[in-house]
Design a protein around this nucleic acid. Sequence first.
DNA 1: AAGTGCTGCGCAATCCGTTGTATACGCACT
DNA 2: AGTGCGTATACAACGGATTGCGCAGCACTT
Lengths: 182, 182
Amino acid sequence: MSLRHAILVLLQDQEASGYDLAREFANSIGLVWNATHQQIYLELGKLSEQDMVRYRHVPQEGKPDKKLYSLTDAGRAELVRWLKKPAGPARIRDAFMVKVAGGALADTQVLLSELDTLAKQRRERLATFEALAQRLDESGRDENVYNYLTVRRGILDQRAWLQWAEEVRHSLEHRSADSTAS
Amino acid sequence: MSLRHAILVLLQDQEASGYDLAREFANSIGLVWNATHQQIYLELGKLSEQDMVRYRHVPQEGKPDKKLYSLTDAGRAELVRWLKKPAGPARIRDAFMVKVAGGALADTQVLLSELDTLAKQRRERLATFEALAQRLDESGRDENVYNYLTVRRGILDQRAWLQWAEEVRHSLEHRSADSTAS
DNA sequence: AAGTGCTGCGCAATCCGTTGTATACGCACT
DNA sequence: AGTGCGTATACAACGGATTGCGCAGCACTT
């Protein structure tokens, strides 16, 4: 249960609305921890009840009003406390990998086309991250170490996945050629 | 909601007890989809109510009795059906990565020691997977494609993570040397 | 003799997360 | 004029997942 801590981390740098956070969870941090907007608004509600964050109402023109949240001292303290104790193991739910494992019963063509779709997404992300890494590298290095390392993780992860995808394509195309021939 | 499908995939090859499945979820498949024994037993219960799996009671000596589950035709049909429709995006919850992102507030030494612990686990897994890959490679290649690809994913993933860990160590040790000196 | 760990199954409570629905306005496209 | 998209927040219902607890016997260590 540390969606709350992920939110606190994001609010550490800058104040943000629930909507802003949702976007960040869809991009950068999303590779590491995902959450939908409903979860985020709910958690922000709890956090502000517990005085870990505060918000100020910001009226806008042409757009709905928003609430900009920021950390309180209690929130920062909670974050520091959490950072000290060991993190639990990472958890993943990768349905596509489950499919590959059960591939013997699957239609190879279906798997291949899904692989393509996913590979495309990964390539896009990779490009985004590489651009981001370069920007971070140029403007101040040491100040952004933690952001930089996070982005690097994203890059290495995408590359590893894409390399694996190549192997899969090779194996499956080989297979489908066999079965087409027979 | 496809813990059920992960279970069906595992039962595709061989009959297994809930306990066996739990072990597999802690090892091989665990990298891709995780589940605890309570979840597994619960899901096996539902699956057998819905006639997707059947079980036979196997008394044992010196050990508790067990139930060996296997797929029914309905279960196999459900699996095939599921394999056809596109998988949702992968979801992850990696608390350690959240910590790195929030590293500015963290104690560098704590992060480094946690990194070591995780790296050790990853190295062990990597060794296990590499051994497994070699065995699969030797005994029949094409029959085990899907297992082989799954294991390959594990290998590439561990390697990417370990490479990243090197970068992190480098950056953080540099940092801690700075702060010690100042 | 007591503690620890492995094999094996399971219930109950609670919490987390997903999905569906709702509201509200402006802008762009068709 | 209608449809869809982006900004912005939020509730309700359901189902999935975690945590805590419990039982039971054998093997091995301390």
